[in-house]
C-alpha cells in the first residue's frame, strides 16, 4: 500500500516554498490556519499572513483588495465557509472584477466525518463553477496538490482549489505533470470510462482493477480541472468507450457528473451513471462509514459501470 498523505499538509508546505520564491504571495485565513495548514506560511512569513478571524465575507473582500493591487492572495478555510458562507462576496468582489484571488478550501465533502452535515461541503463545486471566469480544481492526491497550488499561483484568474481533511493514497505517478484544463489518463480501456475527482480517484482505480478481472476494461480519467473542463478527453472517451461513470464526493447536482453530462449531451451522447451524493445532506460518522452509506465506494463505482454498460448501444 503506498504511503498516504494529507493534501492540506502538502498545500501548507507548498505555500511556504512559493512564499520564498515570490514576495507577492500573501495568505489569509479565518481562524482555521492550524487546520488548513496555512499555519506554516504564518510561521515563515508573519508579515504576509493575515488572520481575519471568523469573518469569511470580510476575508474574501480583503483578498480581492490585495489582488487588485498586485498581490497573489491565497484565502483558506473549510470548504463550507469558503464558498456558501460568502458566495456573494466571491461573486461580486472577486469574480465580477476578475481579481486574481486563490481560494483554497479544505475539509470538503462527506469525508470530514464526525463534524456532520453543517461541515460537509457537498455543493461548493456547483456554486463556484457557476461563476464566470473561475478556474476550479480538485486534486486527487498530495503529488497533484503540490503541482496544482503552484499552477494556480501562476494562473491569472480567480481560482478555487478543493482539498479534504483526511489522508489519501498517492494515485498519480511520480513523473506526472499537472496542467490546468487537462484530464489525466490513469488507465486505458474501451468498455466504459470512469471519470473521478479528488477522494474518488483511488476507489475509481480500485473499481477498474476489480472489473478488469471480470474482463471489463475501463478507461479511467482524473478530471481534476472541473473548469475549464477537458472537453476533448470527455468526447473522446464517449466516442471510444461508449459509456461513462462519474464519481465525486459532491451533490449529483452541479458537480463533475453534471458538467460531463452537459458536455456529451452536446457533442456525443452516451449512457451515463453518476456516483455522487443524491440530493441529501451528510451526517456524523467515520469517513469510511459515510462514504459507504452514501454510495461512494469502489464497489458502487463498479456496480455503476456494469449498469451503464447494459445500456450501451
Amino acid at each position: 500500500m503506498p504511503e498516504e498523505v494529507a493534501p492540506r499538509e502538502v498545500f501548507g508546505k507548498t505555500l511556504v516554498d512559493l512564499g520564498k520564491e515570490n514576495p507577492d504571495i500573501v495568505v489569509l485565513d479565518a481562524d482555521l490556519a492550524s487546520s488548513t495548514m496555512t499555519v506554516y506560511f504564518k510561521q515563515a512569513f508573519p508579515e504576509r499572513f493575515f488572520e481575519i478571524g471568523i469573518a469569511e465575507a470580510n476575508m474574501m473582500g480583503i483578498a480581492a483588495g490585495l489582488a487588485a493591487n498586485g498581490k497573489i492572495p491565497f484565502a483558506s478555510t473549510f470548504a463550507v465557509f469558503a464558498t456558501s458562507r460568502c458566495f456573494d462576496q466571491i461573486r461580486v468582489s472577486i469574480a465580477l472584477s476578475k481579481f486574481n484571488v486563490k481560494i483554497v478550501s479544505t475539509h470538503s465533502g462527506l469525508s470530514v466525518g464526525e463534524d456532520g452535515a453543517s461541515h460537509q461541503a457537498l455543493e461548493d463545486l456547483a456554486l463556484i463553477c457557476s461563476l464566470p471566469g473561475f478556474t476550479v480544481i480538485v486534486p486527487a492526491d498530495g503529488t497533484e496538490t503540490a503541482q496544482v497550488i503552484r499552477a494556480v499561483a501562476a494562473h491569472p484568474t480567480p481560482c478555487y482549489v478543493r482539498l479534504i481533511r483526511g489522508k489519501v493514497p498517492q494515485v498519480m505517478d511520480n513523473g506526472y505533470k499537472f496542467e490546468i484544463g487537462k484530464a489525466a489518463l490513469m488507465r486505458q480501456g474501451k468498455d466504459a470510462t470512469i471519470m473521478a475527482i479528488g477522494t474518488m480517484m483511488a476507489p475509481a482505480l480500485e473499481a477498474a482493477d476489480a472489473l478488469a478481472k471480470e474482463n471489463i476494461n475501463c478507461r479511467v480519467l482524473n478530471m481534476s480541472t472541473l473548469k475549464p473542463i477537458d472537453e476533448t478527453a470527455i468526447v473522446q472517451a464517449a466516442a471510444e468507450t461508449g459509456a461513462i461513470v462519474t464519481a465525486e464526493e459532491h451533490q449529483e447536482h452541479g458537480g463533475l457528473g453534471s458538467i460531463v453530462a452537459r458536455t456529451i449531451a452536446k457533442h456525443h451522447p452516451v449512457p451515463m451513471e453518476f456516483v455522487a451524493v443524491k440530493d441529501k445532506f451528510g451526517m456524523s460518522g467515520k469517513p469510511a462509514e459515510l462514504l459507504a452509506k452514501y454510495g461512494l465506494t469502489a464497489q458502487d463505482i463498479a456496480t455503476a459501470v456494469k449498469e451503464v454498460i447494459k445500456r450501451k448501444r
Binding site: I62, G65, L66, D88
Partner: peptide, 24 residues
C-alpha cells in the same frame, strides 16, 4: 477600482487595498 452594487462589500476591499499599500 472595484465592482460594487451588492451593498456592504466595499470596506473589506478597501482594507485589502490598504494592506497591499502598507506591504509595498
Amino acid at each position: 477600482e472595484m465592482s460594487s452594487g451588492s451593498l456592504g462589500q466595499g470596506l473589506s476591499f478597501s482594507v485589502g487595498t490598504a494592506l497591499a499599500g502598507r506591504l509595498d
